[in-house]
Computed example of a mutant assay.
Amino acid sequence: MHIADLGEVQLHYRIDGDPDGAPMVFANSLGTDLRLWDAVLPLLPDGLRLIRYDKRGHGLSSAPPAPYSMGALVRDAELLLDHLKVRDCLFVGLSIGGMIAQGLAVKRMDLVRAMVLSNTAAKIGTAEMWNDRIAAIEAGGIESLADPVMERWFSKSFRASPDLALWRNMLVRQPAVGYVGCSAAISGTDFMTPTSGLRLPTLGIAGDQDGSTPPDLVRETVDLVPGSQFHLIRGAGHLPCVENPVEYAEVLTRFLRETGHV
């Protein structure tokens, strides 16, 4: 575990795998920390430099006052990769992490050579929806939204398992300021036009039971990039890397090999 002091924010990050390998960067979803990828990473091929981080207001990273902008979240990722001297990475972003991936690919073509847009979109929800969620958290904390969030995140069968408690606990223990700040960033983001200008290898992943970013929404965004691929994981919700890490890792591995990244 390490902290990168980027001035305005201090980001917690972790590097696994081969320190000299091809870089693969993971950005997690709203309300989770870098442990989101724990089950997937051991299933990936050898020879990769696996970089994970907690975005601002999440996990062990610092939590500046809300609201945040998507530009600030993209800049955080940019500064972290510059700090780590990363170039030409394969960037995997889930949910808000996928929005960060799109923004970073548009801003810094030297940093991102290929991207995976998992359970995400160029635009997620409406400003009214996010404002209502922010107001609910400010009134009753993240706990007040935890059960509806679990329904959107996971399939019915997973919600019946004891493991649900791990992810519910992770959600409610995130700093409220971080959740509110990142919610504001999502609310103000529409990447339809800039993402449509991207020309890089792109893979979209969706869960057929995702209540946050349904498959059609993910596909609509992925289709903005010519030559992109799309994979649907059945029986999974918003976090298929948790519900079906084996299939998720297989899809990533195939994309890694097709793009010559491993």
Rank of each mutant, 00 (worst) to 15 (best):
A39T: 07
D54R: 02
F91W: 10
R35C: 11
I15S: 05
N244R: 14
S118Y: 06
R113E: 04
E143D: 12
V251T: 15
P201T: 02
A165V: 12
W153K: 07
K55F: 00
E151T: 09
G97Y: 00
T120Q: 12
L239H: 14
P162N: 13
I124V: 13
A72N: 06
L252Q: 13
P148C: 07
W130K: 07
I3E: 01
P214G: 10
H12V: 00
D76N: 14
F154E: 13
N244L: 11
M115T: 03
L217A: 12
A249G: 13
M170H: 02
L252G: 06
G21Q: 06
V149G: 04
P148Y: 02
S61W: 00
L117W: 11
G98E: 03
M70H: 13
S228D: 07
I233G: 07
W130C: 00
A136M: 09
L171Q: 04
V180H: 01
L50A: 01
R173G: 09
N119H: 15
M192K: 10
T221S: 13
V177A: 15
L11N: 05
I142R: 03
L34T: 11
K123G: 07
V116Y: 05
L232D: 12
L104G: 08
E220Y: 01
S228I: 00
T126K: 12
V25F: 08
L6D: 02
L84Y: 11
S118T: 09
